[in-house]
Amino acid sequence: MFESTLQFILAGLTSGAIYALVGLGFTIIYNASHVINFAQGEFIVIGGMSTVALTAAGLPLPLAIVLATVVTMVVGMALARFAIQPAKDADVVALIIITIGASIFLRGIVQLVFGKDIHSLPPFSGETPLNLMGATLMPQSLWVMGISAGLILVMAWFFNATLAGKAMLATAYNSLAARLMGVDTKWVLLSAFALSAFLGAVGGIVVTPITFVSYESGIMLGLKGFSAAVLGGLGNGIGAVAGGLILGVVEAMSAGYISSAYKDAIAFVIILVVLVARPNGLFGKKGIDRV
């Protein structure tokens, strides 16, 4: 009994860590621009697919990873420069359409460049399951969790201790005031997208050995990542990670104890309940409306 509960939790943490990584990407861009980037899932796909293609072309894995990350970051910055920046004054709904349009566009490109096959990458440290009090976990899941944890620490440091990070937060809070204080807001937007794309690419590379990657993987991952970020409270890195892990564990527990057919529905019911009780998510700050 205890063993299976533990197994459910580990299963949930494996999926949850993946959702959390995607959720973090949403958070960075939201923090810098109040834009929800629905193309975040595509960053993961581009990172994963490029790595697969580059290794297949004969490059050693580490070099492939670096190149794939660079490619994804370039795509991210291009998106910021050519799609988000020119539309900076558009309202929320228009920006949502732009990022959804971007995700469809990028999916089309990925499909054309890399094809429609499903791919995998070899796990970083073998496929021998780790045994934990009778329950098992793949080493790759530890990689995902470890990298998520590391990225949160780096982000916390970046936003709280570096000038660049503070400039980003200031821009999100009040773009005009930040500009008057000498912050180059265009640069902030570009670097936020670059950072978020970096996160997506890294996520795609560590996650691919578990979930595989295809040109379509981004839809589901984007949806779950968005859910994680909203559940935790938009703009809060810790919140996004907590949201992702909660989402994963709720799904696994529901599949284990209630019904595998309804596990996704149960997760969404919980999100709804949380939002009704706390309209700004678990860790979100209460917003103030200005007249």
């Binding site: 299976s4 197994q7 459910f8 580990l10 299963a11 949930g12 494996t14 999926s15 993946i18 098992t136 996650v207 578990i210 979930t211 993987s217 839809i219 589901m220 799904e251 696994a252 527990m253 599949a255 284990g256 595998s260 057919a261 596990k263 996704d264």
Partner: peptide
């Protein structure tokens, strides 16, 4: 059962 894009089905298999 599982959904087509589920990243992990160990919960169902544990059952």
């Amino acid at each position: 059962v599982y959904s087509p894009k589920d990243p992990d089905v160990t919960a169902q298999l544990t059952k």
